[in-house]
């Protein structure tokens, strides 16, 4: 055999990292990249701090970064139950409240969205029956569902979970549908010719082939899930980061408001990283593919 295995061996190893020339201010490599990434946030914080005087700017409305930091430290580590500062020491529990709601709602969104999307993409009959309804409901923003959700579920967790599940569901289902619809026809034919049943094709070809698109949907859906939890906590639930956000605004604690906003951002980032990690693992075969192309 002439096209010897040796040829593929040559192609297989991951190419050596290209030499990155340091450009301008920063050294090459990871440290330089981190420094470059940190530059803008640091500049903004410094400018914000300098623009303020006496702990605030914009006529006393906005606290300076040091005040925000102080507020967060009390919020996170202060003693609980002090009458003067109702937020003291409640950061972690509020973060957990919101995160749990996101987790529950999003698991629901995945549990319904992934199978539904794959089925819609795979079967014309399912698509014809279910897809029009989804497309009809999808343009209704989740915020418009708030009164409905409060009326049905009252002021409690279920209302928030419903909104999160609904908001996360749409991108998950739509992307899963696209993924399942765009499966290479020859993969399906090959599986059928090897004796795969329709269910085998669904589980062993369509589902894995749709995974990259499904993960795209999960990442978008998770972002919407965080939007949904904050909105519903602001309006319909009496705990969590969204509740604190609105409550602190109401009593004029802008330092807590900003600390809360940044906390939401951090949690969103963290949960996104979590999905990316799972994605990395589940789509190992794809990394190898792009490395060899």
């Amino acid at each position: 055999m002439n096209d010897a295995p040796a040829r593929a061996l040559d192609a297989a190893p991951v190419p050596a990292a290209p030499k990155v020339k340091s450009r301008g201010l920063f050294p090459a490599g990871r440290t330089g990249a981190a420094m470059r990434a940190a530059l803008l946030p640091v500049l903004v914080i410094v400018a914000w701090q300098l623009a303020g005087s006496g702990g605030s700017l914009a006529g006393g409305v906005l606290p300076t970064p040091d005040r925000v930091w102080d507020a967060w430290v009390v919020w996170a580590f202060g003693p609980q139950g002090m009458g003067l500062n109702p937020y003291s020491g409640t950061w972690l529990s509020n973060v957990l409240f919101s995160s749990m709601r996101v987790a529950q709602g999003f698991v629901l969104a995945m549990a319904i969205g992934i199978p539904a999307g794959v089925m819609i993409g795979w079967s014309r009959a399912v698509s014809g029956t279910v897809d029009p309804t989804i497309q009809l409901l999808r343009p209704i923003p989740i915020t418009a569902w708030l009164p409905f959700s409060i009326a049905v579920f009252g002021i409690q967790d279920m209302g928030a979970i419903f909104l999160i599940a609904l908001g996360g569901f749409y991108p998950v289902v739509v992307n899963a549908t696209h993924g399942a619809r765009d499966v290479d026809r020859n993969w399906i034919r090959a599986a059928e010719m090897m004796g795969a049943s329709r269910f085998d094709v669904l589980r062993r070809v369509v589902l894995p082939a749709a995974l990259p698109a499904i993960f795209t949907g999960l990442r978008i859906g998770l972002g919407i899930a965080w939007t949904a939890v904050i909105v519903s906590e602001m309006v319909a639930v009496k705990s969590g980061l969204g509740y604190v956000l609105w409550d602190a605004y109401y009593v004029g604690r802008m330092d807590v408001v900003i600390a809360d906003m940044l906390s939401i951002g951090a949690m969103g980032l963290l949960s996104d990283r979590l999905i990316v990690t799972v994605e990395h693992w589940a789509l190992r075969w794809r990394r190898l593919q792009s490395a060899s192309r």
């Binding site: 290479d184 020859n186 993969w187 034919r189 090959a190 599986a191 010719m193 090897m194 062993r204 070809v205 894995p208 082939a209 075969w285 794809r286 593919q289």
Partner: peptide
């Protein structure tokens, strides 16, 4: 009736 496809059509995962 086994088929061999032009681009092999192997399942990449």
């Amino acid at each position: 009736r086994a088929v061999v496809f032009q681009e092999a059509a192997l399942l990449p995962w």
